[in-house]
Amino acid sequence: MQILYFAWLREKIGLGEELLILPPNVTTPRGLITWLRARGTNYAAGFANEALIRCAVDQEFCALDAPFGAAAEIAFFPPVTGG
């Protein structure tokens, strides 16, 4: 699955996107965050405060607990600040 990171989350993790094969028990964005945190201190730092993390599944805003099914792309980012 393609995973994307934006803004300070991208800076803390140290990359903007990566292609990862997820274990079958990871089925929601929140589950994916838990799994990513265990991959390294950069992920743990980026995802330290889940209250500041938003996500999009296949380019649509999505709740962290909504199962992503067969999605191709998940993005994590801080609350948006456009306009």
Partner: peptide
Amino acid sequence: KTAAPFWKAEEFADGTQAW
């Protein structure tokens, strides 16, 4: 301001920056 994926970072004249 709340429903489009844009993020702003500020660069200040004193050299500091912040999201």
